[in-house]
Every structure is written in C-alpha cells, then in structure tokens.
Design a protein around this nucleic acid. Structure first.
Lengths: 330, 330
DNA sequence: TTGTAAGCGTTATCAC
DNA sequence: GTGATAACGCTTACAA
C-alpha cells in the first residue's frame, strides 16, 4: 500500500504536490504533473479512504436503519437508496432494528457515531427524542414512518387514504362486517391505517366494532391466533382489511381455507398469482428510498436551504380477484 | 463533541491516561480512574470512531456484495450476516452488483478501499482474479457462488445434487420430456444445476435434448419469451425444472395457464400458497450468511489457522402439489 | 508553482 | 502508574 509520501519520494516532490496532482488541482506545472502521474502509476497508488475520511470528519456513507432488511418492502427501499448513493460515490451501511423497539436507540446511535453523511430510518420505537442531539450534525430522514419526539424530514405513504380507499372498496362490495388485521397499533403506520379504516366505516354509516380489530399478526402463527377471536364471533367478519404486507402474507393460508374477502395494505411478490389474487393498496418503496436518499444528498449539498419537512406519497388501490365477488347476503 | 484531550484537561491528567481508563487498562490508580471517569461523564465523552478506525487501519465493517439486495434470497443472506456482525460490534456495508458483470470489479474494489474487516461476495462476473491482490489483506468469503480466478473461502449449496434430485423426482412422476429454464448458463450456480439436471436424465436413460433448455429467464417477460421456443416444439416438455427462484417466480403465470408440472431450485415467499403449490429445492440463505460471516470473524481472530476452503451445504426437496400429478400418457 | 508545518483524535512506545 | 512524544495518511493554511 503505497502512500502519498512514497509517491512523493519517487517523483522527487513533496507529498502536497502529489495530493494536488491526485486531486486534479490545476496549480501544478504539466511536467511536474507528468512525473507525479507516472510515479502514481508505478506504485499503483490507492488513496487510503480511512485517512481522507478521518481528515474530513465525515464518512462518505449513508446509514439505513429498517426493521428488517430481508423484508421485500424494506429491501426495495434499501436498494433504491444504495443505487442513488453509488451514483454519488457513497456507501450504504444497513442495520436491522429487529422487532424490539427498546433496542433501537442503542443500535441507531452506534450507527451515528460513525460520523455518517446521513441517516435514513424507518423506526420501530415510539420515541425518537434520542436523536435530538444528532439533528444538527447529521441529515436525518424518516421513511415509511413519521418521527416522534424529534423534528426531521419524512417521506411516508398516505396510510389514512389507502386504508380508507380499501375499506370503502370492501363496503362497496356489500360488506358490513369488515375486520381489521394488523401488527401493532402503536406503530404510526398501523395506527394511521386503523384510523382510515374507521373513517371509511363511519362514512358508510357502519358502526365500528372493536371486536373486529385483530392485532398481533406478525407471521402465520400469530396471524392465525389473531384471527381466532374473529372466527369465534357470533357475527364474524365477511371481509378483512389487512394493514401491512407481512400480515397479508401471513393471512393467505386462512384466506384460502376460509373463503374470506381480503384487501391488504402493501403489495407483495406473487400477490397477483394467488388464488384468489389479493387486492392491495400499492406502495412504492423504491420511490420512498430514492426520495429519502435524494434529500440526504440535498441537505449535504445545501445545508442552509429549507425543505418541506413532511412528504406524503399517494397510494393506489390495485383491485384483484380477492374482492371481485360480492358479500354474501346477511 | 468532547475529545480525550478535553477530558484529560478537565481531569488534570494526560490524554493517554484517559485512553487507559476508557479502555479499561488495569494500570491506573483507582483514584485517578475515578477522577477520569467523572470527567468522562461530565463531558459525556463519546469516542471518535473515525479516529480509532484510522489509527487501527481497519474499519469494523464487513462488506457484502450481492447481485440484488431486494431479492429475498440475498436479503436473507444479508440479514444473517448483519445479525452476526452486530453481535461483534461491526457494521455491514451492502452493495448491489446489478446485472452487469463488467461493473463488478470497479464496485467491489471501491468497497475494499475502505479497509474493510472482511468481504462477503456472491459474484456476478466470471472472473474474480481482480481480487488477487486483496486476499492477503482482507478476509474474502464467497457465498452462493464459487470464485473463479482467485483462491478464497466459499460457502455454496449443492447445485448439482439439488438439480439432480428435482429432476429425478420429475422423472419419477413419469415425465420424459423435461425442460430446463434458467437465467444464464455462465453463472456457476446455473451451470452446476444444468449439469445435475443432465446427469439425472442420463441416469434415467433419457437422452438430453438441448431444445428443452431455455435460458434468459430473468423476469416475467423474458421467462415467457424463453418458454416460447419450448412451446413451439413438436414434442414439447410436460414438466419444467427451473434453475432459480427468480426464474420460478417468473414462470408462475405460465404454469397457471399452461398446466405444466414444475419443480424449481430455491424456495420463495408464497410458493406453498400458489395453485398449484410449487415443489422446490430448499436452500438455506440464512445459513450461508451466518457461515460466511463466522468465517470472516474466525479469519480475523485467527489469521494463521487453516480452514477448509470450500463448503457445500446440502439441499433438500420440498415436494408440493405442482409435482403430485403424474405425467400424461404420451 | 511548490513546499513546510500543523493538525484531525486516538493509541503504541518508551521514558520517568 | 503516568505522561511526553510520535505516528497513522491526508489536506488546509500559509510561506516561499
């Protein structure tokens, strides 16, 4: 690993001149540049990124913290971020937050210690006030979920409208007893979707029934458990609104056997190939990722400029077979 | 951001003593330690990771280079790596290689410049000789795909046996005209699976017919295109072996309409919920990721120790409906 | 145009 | 047990 000093020695100049040549500083005589260039080649000089980073005080790295990288939704967000970062010669450090919100602060702060150029986070916990001291040091952008307890940019999707649209769609098919299946109402996305679901019922003149709200659906087992209560009701649901893709995927075995009508928030692989194909509210994770990464880059390039803090992307209903039949007459 | 010097000044000691206290060096008098500790707390000292990293010459970071982070298979690998890395206070830098093998060297080398503690790669190109100069500097571990042109550790799955097993299974159901659908035979995994497919046919006394090998299946459109040739044959296939999960997923629309029997290499979300449910060779991406990350950590901890270069994990056939019917009588 | 000096924050070395 | 000094590789400020 040749250093600039090595190159300088070989070219018979100072390290500073090597630095100038390497960084295309015009204030170098052509013949000097040539000598240095050939020395650079001869030693096949590669800059020590660590040193440059240390000197500059900021790593050319964007941090990404999401609940689960293996989830196709967050994977798509991460991929979009990485693509944009690569175009700007930046790397991406990815961290999974897991499902325990209490570990979030520790994980995220250890990320931030690395003097990142920016952090993009889809938070898990219900309080990001621990980020307060970082906001003036590192551009901070929330995706998918709004921040709580801290002022920061956010790019989210219209949870309320999407849920409203899907629920209204189910109502339009004659359903009156519509269940809500989700993970955890304290997650901002889920609570927004629950509100949209309730608003749609309300507008349709249907009284919301909390017995029809089944939470705790994280995987197939817990989804089945969450639905047991619904199944036990005297006046059970004829349709379900599922509040996220993971929950919808977990519900698929139940849908197949139970013959329920379903609409879900969030598309997922093969949703259109199932029998029945699942109607979903289509999100655009790649757009979320791209916008978030672009905001980080913008904030780095123009620290003074002002930006709209909160951006909510529209969603759209993709109707598939799972909703094409009408509700059974009650 | 208080530095060690600040703490030292406050505690009335030298920076080195602060360093000793902070790093639990026992050679510090208890009363000195106490003074330093309280100064550390008072200034809420946080070490500058960049400086430590620079000093040590190696970033506590494991690089991960895969064709596509958003692919559930590689997402699962990445997640497993990240989990193990986090347990060792390391971060993970993830890069997508995309689908253009010629860009791989540039992308990977810019990763390696960051003085990583290790690199885990599922390569795209057919030649990794560009990694030769890095092997004695950075632990290098291949996952899913064998290296070419460079000596390095690898953890792969048994492509040949898996394909052999699946093809034999199809043969066992009475199929004689069995097609092979895949992406690119120059990718080592695909070529290994093609070989396993051919070997199984050979053992069954079925003559391999290259007309039945359809390559270029990357997404739904290209999969459909690749199958057009098969469909045009006078004596077309009654069953297909698909060489990877992405290809299998792309084939699903065709399977549904065409009534073909299918077995695929690689499980994927919802494969068991489709109609028909798809028989697959089950891989274990999480195991690949964990083993690879563990190897990186082992090589860091014990640079002298010798390891088995090549580890091939077994795979197992998961039989589902898509193969349960017998071939139509010819 | 080129070079010198200094410093980023941490830690290894070697005195005391 | 503690501290002064130097060093990691690069770049900014300033001098020549």
């Amino acid at each position: 690993m040749a250093t600039m000093r090595d190159v300088a020695a070989l070219a018979g100049v100072s390290a500073k001149t090597v630095s100038r040549v390497f960084n295309d500083d015009p204030h170098v005589r052509p013949e000097t540049k040539e000598r240095v260039d050939s020395a650079l080649r001869e030693l096949s000089y590669v800059p020590n990124t660590l040193a440059t980073t240390f000197r500059s005080g900021r790593a050319p790295v964007i941090g990404v913290a999401v609940p689960d990288i293996a989830d196709p939704f967050f994977g798509a967000i991460a991929k979009a971020i990485e693509t944009l970062a690569a175009q700007h010669d930046m790397s991406v450090v990815i961290t999974s937050l897991g499902d325990d919100g209490t570990r979030e602060p520790r994980i995220v702060q250890s990320l931030l210690r690395q003097a990142l150029s920016g952090l993009i986070i889809a938070p898990l916990s219900h309080d990001q006030s621990y980020l307060g001291s970082w906001t003036d040091r590192t551009p901070l952008v929330f995706v998918d979920r709004q921040p709580t307890g801290v002022l920061a940019d956010s790019f989210t999707e219209d949870d309320h409208a999407g849920a409203h649209q899907a629920t209204t769609h189910l109502v339009g098919h004659g359903h009156v007893r519509i269940g809500f299946v989700g993970d955890d109402a304290s997650i901002p996305t889920t609570s927004g979707r629950l509100a949209g679901y309730r608003a749609a019922l309300d507008e349709a003149g249907i009284e919301a029934d909390d017995d029809l709200v089944a939470l705790g659906a994280f995987d197939r087992a817990s989804a089945a458990a969450a639905c047991t209560a619904l199944a036990g009701l005297a006046d059970g649901p004829t349709a379900l609104f599922s509040s996220n893709a993971r929950a919808t995927m977990s519900l698929v075995p139940l849908i197949r056997t139970g013959g329920l009508t379903v609409a879900g928030f969030g598309d997922f692989p093969m949703a259109d190939m199932l029998t029945p194909a699942i109607t979903v509210v289509d999100q655009d994770p790649a757009a979320l990722g791209t916008l978030a990464a672009q905001r980080v880059l913008d904030r780095l390039a123009h620290p003074q400029r002002r930006y709209r803090r909160r951006t909510v992307l529209p969603v759209r209903l993709v109707e598939r077979e799972s909703c094409r039949s009408r509700a059974p007459r009650g």
